[in-house]
């Protein structure tokens, strides 16, 4: 699962259905912090924003 979709945690049901539910609490906070570091801090993305 990409970090972009880290807002959602996917639960695979036995019937083959997929349900997305929001992550909450520390799991979401950790994923969000890491996402910010990867995208905003990382020099790899400097060309996208030219800052």
């Amino acid at each position: 699962m990409s970090r972009l979709t880290s807002v959602l945690s996917t639960i695979f049901l036995s019937a083959g259905l997929t349900v997305s539910v929001p992550l909450t609490g520390s799991a979401f906070a950790d994923e969000c912090r890491q996402r910010f570091i990867d995208v905003v801090i990382s020099v790899k993305n400097a060309d996208m924003r030219a800052l």
């Binding site: 969000c32 912090r33 801090i41 990382s42 020099v43 790899k44």
Partner: peptide, 22 residues
Amino acid sequence: ADTASQIQQDRAATVRNTNCTT
């Protein structure tokens, strides 16, 4: 631009008050 510089790694360690929305 293929690796994060030392300053970026140091800054990353101080990241706080993050918020992710759409």
